[in-house]
Amino acid sequence: MLPDPRCPPVQGRLTALHDHLDASPLDGRTVFITGGTGFFGYWMLSLFDLLRQRGVDVRVRLLSRNPAAFAAVAPYFSAQSWVSCVRGDVKSFADATPADLLIHAATDTDAAAHRDPLAIMDNILLGTRHTLAHALSSGVRRVLYVSSGAVYGVQPADIEQLPESASCACDATHPDSAYGSAKRGAEQWCVQFGREHGIAIPIARCFAFVGAGLPLNGHFAIGNFIGDALAGRPICVNGDGTPLRSYLYGADLAIWLLKILLQGTHGQAYNVGSDQAVSIRELAETVRDALCPEHAVHITRSAPDNALRSRYIPAIGRARSELDLDVWTSLEQAIRLTAASAAPHQHA
Rank of each mutant, 00 (worst) to 15 (best):
D27S: 12
R29W: 09
T30E: 11
H134C: 11
I222W: 02
V287Q: 08
P5C: 04
L102I: 03
H134F: 12
S92I: 07
A269Q: 09
H347S: 06
V327Q: 10
Q11I: 15
R6V: 04
G180C: 03
F93N: 01
L214F: 05
A340D: 14
C85Q: 12
L126A: 13
L14P: 01
T300I: 05
I299D: 09
A221S: 11
V327H: 03
R59H: 04
C190L: 14
A74G: 10
V143K: 05
A348Y: 14
Y145I: 03
A200M: 06
G317Q: 13
N123L: 11
G194H: 09
T300P: 04
F220P: 02
R54N: 14
R288W: 05
T107Y: 11
R336S: 10
R54P: 03
R311H: 11
L337H: 04
L47E: 05
T300V: 10
L126P: 00
V151A: 01
L132S: 01
I203T: 09
G35W: 00
T109F: 02
L308I: 13
F193L: 04
R142A: 11
P314Q: 07
E187M: 12
I120Q: 08
T265V: 11
T338P: 14
G28N: 06
S274G: 03
D305I: 14
R59M: 00
A319F: 15
D4V: 02
G273A: 05
L21Q: 07
G139R: 06
K259Y: 04
R309P: 12
P202Y: 08
L26M: 07
C85P: 01
H298V: 15
L214E: 06
A319M: 13
F70M: 03
V56G: 05
L101M: 03
C236A: 10
G88Y: 02
D89Y: 00
